[in-house]
Design a protein around this nucleic acid. Sequence first.
DNA 1: GAACTCAGTGAGAGCGCTCTCGACGACGTG
DNA 2: CACGTCGTCGAGAGCGCTCTCACTGAGTTC
Lengths: 345, 345
Amino acid sequence: MTETTARPTLEAVAARAGVSRATASRVVNGGDGVREPLVERVRRAVDELGYVPNQAARSLVTKRHDAIAVVIAEPETRVFADPFFALQLRGISKELTVHDSQLVLLLTEGRDDHARVGRYLAGGHVDGALVFSLHLDDPLPGLIQGAGVPTVFGGRPGWSDGTPGPVYVDSDNRGGAREAVRHLVGLGRTRIAHIAGALDQTSAVDRLDGFRDVMADADPRMVVESDFTPAGGERAMRELLDRCPDLDGVFAANDLTAAGALRVLRERGRRVPEDVAVIGFDDMLPVAEQTDPPLTTIRQDIEEMGRLMARLLLRRLDRSTTGRADADTPAAVVLPTTLVRRASA
Amino acid sequence: MTETTARPTLEAVAARAGVSRATASRVVNGGDGVREPLVERVRRAVDELGYVPNQAARSLVTKRHDAIAVVIAEPETRVFADPFFALQLRGISKELTVHDSQLVLLLTEGRDDHARVGRYLAGGHVDGALVFSLHLDDPLPGLIQGAGVPTVFGGRPGWSDGTPGPVYVDSDNRGGAREAVRHLVGLGRTRIAHIAGALDQTSAVDRLDGFRDVMADADPRMVVESDFTPAGGERAMRELLDRCPDLDGVFAANDLTAAGALRVLRERGRRVPEDVAVIGFDDMLPVAEQTDPPLTTIRQDIEEMGRLMARLLLRRLDRSTTGRADADTPAAVVLPTTLVRRASA
DNA sequence: GAACTCAGTGAGAGCGCTCTCGACGACGTG
DNA sequence: CACGTCGTCGAGAGCGCTCTCACTGAGTTC
C-alpha cells in the first residue's frame, strides 16, 4: 500500500514503440508531423503501459500549467454559502473541462490571506485567475493586477480610476432592476420603495441606479440601504413602513432581503401582493420558491456567468500564446436578466 | 503586456547571496543545517529578488504536489447548489491553507466524466483526494480506489463488501435522527411519521435507521421515501396525511423536505406545532430560518466535516511519507449533531 | 543526374529544482 | 600529534518532459 508502482515515462513508451522520445512526445501532443504507422504504434504503447504525461515535467519546460485559479474572497460564511458560488463554480468547471484545464480554488479568510493569494498567483502556478471581488474596498484586485496574472473578474469591480479596464463578466444589474421596477409600475403601483443592498458592492449600486432610472422623482425616503440578508430586509421593511405606511410596492435588492421584507409585511398585516407587491432579485431557488407567497424576482444566469468568465480567460490566454492581438476579445460581458413571475408581484 | 519578466530562479538567489544552489535550497526549505549568517543572506536575497519556488520543478523531483483534489460528483444542480458543499469546501480550504496545500476542484457531470476524473487522479497530479460520493451506485469510489490515490470520503460510502474500510468523515446521521425522534416523543407525540430521503444515499438510510431505532414498533405506513427536495416533501406529506390523518409528528430527512411538508400541513389546515410537530435535519440556515414557523432541526457541523476530511487525508499522506505506521489515524470519524430548537417542534 | 527541397525522425540540451555525496574545517579523543 | 567525528557546504546528477536542430531519404527541378 505504499506508492503506486512507478508510473511509466515517455522514455518507456518510446522504447516500447521503437521510436525516439521526441517522436513519442509528438504523438502524445497531437501527433502532427508523424507518419501514421508510427502514430499508431506509439498510441498502442501508451495504452498498454497506461502512460499519463507528468504534468510537472511538462510545465517545467512549457511554462504553461493548464490550470487556472478561482479566487473567492468572501469572509462572511453566510454569503459564501449561498448557491451563487456553487453555480458559478459549476459553470467555470464545465468550461475548463472542455479545455482540459484544472480549477484551483482559493478561498480567502480575512485580510491576512490576501498576501497568501497574491503570492500564490505571482508564483506562476496557474495560467490565469478568475476573481470574485465583491467589495469596493477589497485590496485583492489590485494585488492581482500587480501579480501580472491574466485575470477575469466576476462582477464589475468598482474602481474609480480609469486604468485599462479590467475584464469582467456581470449580470445586467441595472437593467434587471429597471425591469423589476417597471413590472411594479405596470401593476399600477405608484409608491414603490427600494431596499438596497450593501452599497460597497457594485451589484447593489447598479440595482439602486436601475431603480432610480425608473423612479427618477421618487421620494429619497423610499430608499433604504440594507445588507442583502433576511434580517436586514426585515429592519429595512420596518423602517420603510414607518416612513411611508402607504407604500404599495417594494423592490428588494435580492431574494433574501425580500424574504425578510415579506415576513414584516405579513406581521404588519399587509397582504402581498394585494396591498404591497414585492419583487426580489437573483431567483435564488431555495428561497424564492419557499417564501409565502412565492417570490416574483429577477433571474440571472449564474452558471452562464461562470462559463463565460472561464471562456473569456481562456481566450485571452490563447491570444497571449499565439501572439495575436486582443482584437475581438471583449473587455466586459454583461449578461441579460429575466423576470420570473410568481405570486408576490 | 507579454509575460511578466522572467521570474528569478534559485540559481539567481544563490548567486546574489554568494552561496551554492544547494544551500539556497536548504534555506528556502526551512534552513536546517545552515549557519545563521548564511540563512540571513539567502533570506535577504529571496526578498530582494522576490523569489518564489517553481512548484513544477520541485514536484518533478520530490514527486509531491502539495495539492489535493476535491471530487464532487453531483449531477443534479439543485443539490449541488445547496450550502452544503460550499461549507465543506470552506472547511477543507482552511485546513489545506494551514498545510500550504492547494485545492484542485473536480466537478463531474454525468457518467462520462468519471473516466476523466479517474484519469486525472491516476495521473498523479495530486497527492490525495477528498471525495463526496453520495449515491450507492456511484462507480467513482471504485475508480478512485483503483487509481491508488490516498482518499478520504465525505459521508459514509455505501459498499456492501468488506474491503479494507474506506476512510471517511460523516455526521452522526443515525444518532441525530434518534435525537430528533426522541425530541418529538418528548413533546408527547405518539403518531410520528418519517419522510425519508433518497434511499440510495447512506445519509438517508442512516436517518431512517435512527428513526426506527426509536420507533421500533411504528406502523410501516408511517414511513415514506422521498428525495430530499421540497416538492418531494410535499408529495410525501400528502401521502402520509392520507394514510394517517391523525399523525401528530413528522421527522423529515432534511430541511428542504420539511419545508415542503410544512406547506402541505398548512394547506390541509394543520397547525404546526400544535397539531403536528415537525422536525428537519441539516439546519440549512436560509431554509430553516425562513420557514413558517421556523424549523426545529438537527444541525451538523458541515464546515468541521470538511476540515476533518482534509486533516485526515493530510495526516495519512504524512504517514506514507515518513513511513510510519497508520496506527493512530482513524479510519472513520463520525461527528456529533445537535438539536436546534425553533418553533416547529 | 546533380542540386535542392522538405517532411519525418532522432540526438541532445536544458527547464528549475532536490538530494546525495564527498570535501573541508573545527573539534574532541587517545 | 594522529585520528575519528560532526556540522556545514558545494558539486553534480538527475526528475520527465519539450523543443531546437541536424540528419536522412524520398521527391522535385533544371
